[in-house]
């Protein structure tokens, strides 16, 4: 992350001791994942009896995906995730720009109100939000999965902070050339903010893909279940088929792990950024 500052720092611990401790810590983190993979290719009779599978049963993955409509769960999760990520990028950045750059009445009170909602646990909003969605006849639709989460305060705060650091002169040059606010925003501000937008996108993606309680409430049938809800239901039905369950679990986790590996820098920068305020 910051190799330049790290290079000047003296080592606190002996290198060998640090590696030993870090490897021990890493083991507790990574062993469950290795265990999940090994179990997913075992015969059922070896699930609890062998550490290493005697034969590799890759077809477990096919069986797991046939035992429940995992393709459908996957598709639903992809649609929901794309919707939420795009929503956050567009709605959050527009609002953030207004808070960072434009002058309008009651700007600070509105911003503080939004900030205050960040302290409120989702349990407080979820009952009324759920009955609202029921009244709109949105249960078991993509509307219910996406629309209520199209914008979020975290993204607005994150982007507002970044937009404020862009020198005003850059925008003024564009405005003198006759660009309207929206065009200035799209053609000047957005390209300058790609790193912050990437951070927001990866956070939104992780949130959407892993979200549980809201999709659990607003979906009833297999048709509209997301991967997390489908997986939890699968666990209820096939509680003892640990090899299939592990195969399903691993495939559910792959998208976030891949996205993490690609966007690692953006994500870690974002996490580090949340702490700076604290």
């Amino acid at each position: 992350m910051s190799t330049t500052t790290a290079r000047t720092r003296p080592a606190r611990w002996g290198t060998a001791a640090r590696h030993t401790l870090l490897i021990a810590g890493s083991a507790t983190v990574i062993v469950p994942f290795v265990w999940m993979f090994l179990t997913s290719v075992k015969k059922r009779s070896e699930v609890f009896t062998r550490l290493w599978p005697s034969e590799w049963h890759w077809e477990n993955y096919v069986h797991a995906w046939q035992a429940a409509p995992f393709e459908r769960y996957y598709l639903n999760s992809i649609v929901m995730t794309v919707g939420i990520v795009v929503g956050h990028l567009v709605l959050d950045s527009l609002a953030a720009y207004a808070f960072a750059r434009l002058r309008f009445p009651a700007k600070n009170p509105i911003f503080l109100l939004l900030l205050a909602t960040m302290m409120v646990p989702q349990f407080v909003t979820i009952i009324p939000a759920f009955s609202l969605v029921v009244q709109l006849h949105w249960t078991d639709t993509y509307w219910a999965l996406i629309v209520p989460r199209l914008a979020d305060v975290f993204g607005i705060v994150l982007l507002r902070q970044y937009f404020s650091t862009i020198p005003k002169e850059i925008e003024e040059a564009a405005r003198l050339d006759g660009c309207g606010r929206l065009r200035t925003f799209v053609q000047v501000v957005v390209p300058l903010s790609s790193a912050s937008l990437a951070t927001l996108a990866i956070f939104a993606m992780l949130f959407a893909w892993n979200d549980f309680l809201w999709p659990l409430l607003v979906t009833n049938g297999d048709e509209m279940r997301t991967i997390q809800i489908g997986l939890a239901a699968f666990q209820g039905r096939y509680a003892t088929s640990w090899n299939y369950l592990m195969a399903g679990t691993l495939t559910s986790a792959i998208p976030t792990i891949v996205m993490f590996l690609i966007f690692q820098r953006a994500l870690i920068r974002g996490v580090a950024g949340t702490g700076v305020k604290g």
């Binding site: 994942f33 893909w209 549980f212 997986l231 939890a232 679990t249 559910s252 792990i257 993490f260 870690i268």
Partner: peptide, 11 residues
């Protein structure tokens, strides 16, 4: 160390 953070709670 970040692997469990990005993994879903369900998994």
């Amino acid at each position: 160390y970040f692997l469990p953070v990005v993994t879903s709670s369900v998994a």
